[in-house]
Simulated scan of single mutants.
Amino acid sequence: MKAIAAKVSEFITLARDGSRHHQRLFLVILFEIIWLRCRYRLMLKEIRLYGLLARDPGPLSLHKDFSARKTIAWMNRVNPPEHRSLVDIKPRFYARCRELGICVPEIYATGQPDPDLLSRLPNRFFAKPAYGAGGDGASAFVRDGTHFHSWDGRKFGDNELLGHLKELARGRELIFQQWIQTHPKLTVLSETALITCRIVTWWPNAHAIEPDILLAYLRIPAKNTIVDNTGYAENGQEMLELDTKTGMPQATWTVHSSGFGIVGSDHVCGERKIPLKALNLPDWGATLELVTNLARTFKNLSTLGWDIGMSENGPIAIEGNTAWGTPLYPSGLHAIAKAMRS
């Protein structure tokens, strides 16, 4: 009963807030929420963030056809389960890439944190779960004599760091790897996190020689974070839409400050308002070549979302995702719709 009461409360809260924001009748909004939930299997968060309660949602009404449940179900159909672990389990992915000479971060160790493992790590390293998503459990550290400093300035002794790493791991194996630095041309976008490009590849049929590039965007993280994940962009993150052929910035997309709806702009980084025309994305040709090689290597999986680090030494494959989530912007949704219909 408590679970049912909590869910009813969520519906009522969204209807109340939506009624105030869109200046529409509460009962009308509540009916639309129930209809969108039942007809399109949308989460309440999706209904709010995608602005589907507005009188005229405009081109972003496309989002109602791309619920997380629906798109993940499609990805699960086209990506055979027996092959997903080759990409989703990061140590296996990195090992295969290294065998083929594909550029990935250097791996220092994998396993549960212990004193012996800690003693074998270099002075700078990045730690993250071997199997995880959304940047959960990721952090970076620098050794300074007998102490460690985390990326956000906290200081740890050996025992304190071991305890902290165990908290991050929560029983999972951790990967301790190279801490990649962002290309100098892109450090203006984040002072802490590595700037990555999410590029989605799709094999339209078994006879295709090259994969299609469905969409590409830079992931602009929120302030004061070490992870590049944008999620639903509800905490200040942004998606910088790119032309898939040239890598030229097209528009920046994020959630409206009210929490209702998606907005596009011709600048990036929120209050700093860096104009897109001032950005010069480096190494786009090499980035596309890297992604094409990755798609060929894992061709048993029809569609993959690649996170490519735009590093000071060129593009580097950070990870692949068999369930890569949908973008916020209309052209990306159109590309996915075309792939799903095929």
Results as ranks from 00 to 15, higher is better:
S258Y: 04
P204R: 09
I107T: 15
P221W: 05
A133Y: 10
F31V: 13
H21L: 05
L301T: 01
G259I: 07
N321H: 03
D136R: 13
P91V: 02
L294F: 00
P315W: 02
K70Q: 14
A169T: 03
N224D: 15
G134H: 08
L194S: 07
G270C: 00
S258H: 05
L281F: 09
H267K: 05
K338M: 12
L49Q: 09
N76W: 09
D88V: 04
E289T: 11
P327M: 12
H63R: 12
G231V: 12
I316M: 13
T326A: 15
A73V: 12
I175W: 07
R120F: 02
A73P: 05
D116R: 14
G247P: 04
N280Q: 12
F156A: 03
T254Y: 01
D17M: 09
E82K: 10
K7V: 07
P59R: 13
P57G: 02
E191V: 03
P122R: 04
L161D: 06
R41K: 14
R39K: 11
V142N: 05
G264P: 02
H164P: 00
L27E: 09
I175S: 05
G259H: 04
T192S: 13
Y108D: 01
H207T: 14
G236Y: 12
N300A: 14
G332L: 14
K64A: 14
M248V: 15
I274Q: 03
E82Q: 14
R92L: 14
R16V: 12
I180D: 09
W253C: 09
L30T: 01
S258M: 05
W284V: 04
S67H: 11
T187Q: 15
L161N: 05
W253P: 06
I175L: 15
G332D: 14
N235Q: 15
T322A: 12
G264L: 10
P315M: 07
T201F: 01
